[in-house]
């Protein structure tokens, strides 16, 4: 394809002179000759699409969260306020106390924003679940990934096979993982309960048990993503020269001390990159919960911000309130990703 602007320009120009260069050499206005302008056909469409559908949608969502949009009809943009945020984060002190497991704080006063006939629950419970899932999942995932990577790094036989086996779950979709673990957790036929009963204990309800819901979800996610953490750590371990291990051995460090003092500090970059990716996955665990609980009603003990958000929007038609939760989730994601991007930028890797 020829540069369409050049083609257009030739259409527009009045002269029908035969050009000696066959039209390959551009003469004329400098504006059209700028690299940025001439390459516009390539960058402008994606730029506009991303601008509209990603950043535009985010902005629109933020505006929506300031309205009272609820039920049928269309939003009213004339009356913007932060009422929804106040309702969502109602009574910060009480809200925080109510979700912390070690204090039995008072019940949270649910507030009634002007648009609601009934009061709306603040988001503390699902926010807390999100944080627990995020921290629990990433920490266990990183620890397990590191342990696997160290084992696989020992020049074991069938290393590639092990690596593939550990990484394979990562390639499954959340839906498959969720259905798969639904079977695994089944109270009568699930493998977990088969093992427990064969050991002489009674069968345990896992999926619908409020005490085990969140751990069960986290466990399944760890199963799926520890392989990813392993690969990232393995790459980090491989980047450390063998001579460092040997020097540490000659220096008299035990295996444990060698890993703690020489190897782990050199895996900091790997840890940070894996951490960011895993945390973002934890924030997006919606698909997993949706498949596991066949909808967005996992019950209060496994309710995370994402399920709460969708429920408010599509079950309760509290569109503006759903948008508010979306913004909170977005800000949480920003808090996690920004330091990473900034540190990458400072090291000149961006």
């Amino acid at each position: 394809m020829r540069n369409p602007i050049a083609l257009l320009r030739r259409r527009w120009s009045d002269s029908d002179d035969v050009r000696t260069d066959g039209g390959t050499v551009d003469s004329g206005q400098s504006f059209w000759n700028r690299d940025s302008v001439r390459s516009a056909p390539f960058w402008l469409p994606p730029f506009l699409l991303v601008g509209l559908f990603v950043y535009g949608a985010i902005l629109w969502n933020i505006v929506l969260s300031l309205t009272d949009f609820q039920g049928l009809g269309s939003p009213d943009y004339s009356n913007l306020d932060f009422e929804n945020y106040l309702a969502a984060l109602a009574d910060p002190i009480d809200g925080l106390l109510s979700v912390l497991p070690f204090v039995n704080g008072g019940a949270v006063e649910a507030r009634s924003p002007s648009w609601a006939q009934l009061s709306v629950e603040p988001i503390w419970n699902s926010a807390w679940n999100t944080v627990v899932l995020m921290v629990g999942f990433t920490v266990v995932c990183l620890a397990l990934g590191l342990a696997l990577a160290i084992l696989v790094d020992h020049k074991i036989r069938y290393e590639n096979t092990f690596r593939t086996i550990y990484l394979l779950p990562m390639s499954l979709s959340f839906v498959v993982t969720a259905k798969f673990w639904l079977y695994m957790y089944n109270v009568e036929t699930g493998l977990i309960n088969v093992v427990i009963t064969s050991l002489g204990f009674g069968a345990v309800e896992i999926v619908q048990n409020p005490d085990l819901k969140l751990p069960a979800v986290a466990f399944a996610l760890v199963w799926q993503f520890s392989g990813y953490a392993m690969i990232v750590y393995l790459a980090g371990l491989r980047a450390i020269p063998t001579s460092h291990f040997e020097a540490a051995r000659i220096d008299g460090a035990s295996t444990l001390r060698m890993y703690r003092r020489v190897v782990l500090p050199q895996l900091r970059t790997a840890t940070v990159s894996a951490l960011v990716v895993l945390t973002v996955f934890a924030l997006k665990a919606f698909d997993f919960l949706f498949s596991m609980y066949s909808g967005y009603q996992p019950g209060p003990s496994a309710d995370i911000l994402a399920t709460r958000m969708v429920r408010e929007a599509y079950a309760n038609q509290n569109w503006a309130y759903g948008s508010t939760i979306a913004v909170v989730l977005f800000v949480m994601a920003l808090f996690i990703v920004t330091p990473y991007i900034y540190s990458q930028y400072q090291r000149g890797e961006l």
Binding site: A248, I250, D251, Q266, R268
Partner: peptide, 27 residues
């Protein structure tokens, strides 16, 4: 014994002082 490696094998996350004292601390 003490060994000097071709690639030096200095621990990149430690200062020179820490590199030099590591062996004494461990052994």
């Amino acid at each position: 014994i003490a060994m000097v490696f071709q690639s030096y094998a200095l621990y990149p996350h430690m200062t020179v002082r820490q590199n030099m004292s590591f062996g004494l601390e461990e052994s």
